[in-house]
Amino acid sequence: MSDSLEALIRDLRTFDRRKEVTNALARNVRKPVPAVRKAIRQRALAVLPARGGFGRWVSKLSITARVKLQGRAAGVSLKGRRKGFPDKQPKVDLRRIDQGRAAAPSWGRRGDGDWHFQQVTPGFFSETGAEFDGWRKATLDAVDEALEVIRRG
Rank of each mutant, 00 (worst) to 15 (best):
T14R: 12
Q99T: 01
L5G: 07
L61F: 11
T128C: 09
T121L: 08
D87V: 02
E20M: 09
K68L: 08
G80L: 05
V58L: 12
R101N: 06
R66A: 06
E20V: 03
Q99A: 12
G75R: 04
Q70F: 03
G123Y: 00
W107M: 14
S62R: 12
N23F: 08
G75N: 00
G52K: 07
V120Y: 01
V67W: 00
V58H: 02
G108S: 14
W115C: 05
I40L: 08
E20W: 02
R13I: 15
E6K: 15
R13T: 09
G134D: 03
S62H: 11
L94G: 04
V67N: 12
F117I: 01
V149Q: 09
A138T: 06
G75I: 07
G55C: 08
F54N: 05
Q42I: 01
R41L: 09
A50S: 12
G80Y: 06
S77K: 13
G129V: 07
A46L: 11
A103W: 14
D144Q: 12
G75W: 05
E131T: 00
E131A: 14
G75S: 13
K91H: 14
R13C: 12
T139Q: 03
T128W: 08
A39S: 05
D3M: 10
A142S: 09
V92Y: 04
Q119T: 12
V92I: 15
G75V: 04
L25H: 05
A44Y: 01
L61C: 12
R13W: 13
W107S: 15
N28R: 11
P34S: 11
F117D: 12
K79I: 05
I150D: 01
I9S: 11
S62W: 06
D98C: 07
K88Q: 11
R96Y: 07
K31G: 05
R10H: 10
G100M: 09
L48M: 05
D133N: 03
G55F: 01
E127P: 00
V92S: 02
A146L: 11
G52C: 07
L140W: 03
F125D: 03
S2V: 13
F125V: 00
R151W: 00
G108R: 02
G100C: 05
Q118S: 04
M1Q: 14
L45Q: 01
V143S: 00
D93S: 13
L94H: 00
V92T: 04
F85K: 03
R109C: 10
E6Y: 09
K83Y: 07
R96T: 02
F117E: 11
L94R: 03
A102E: 10
S4T: 13
R51G: 00
K31P: 02
E127R: 11
F54M: 06
R109Q: 15
D141V: 08
E127G: 01
F124C: 03
A130Q: 15
A7Q: 15
V92E: 04
A74W: 13
D141P: 03
L5N: 13
D93K: 04
D16N: 07
G80F: 08
F117H: 10
M1I: 11
S62D: 15
D11G: 11
R30A: 11
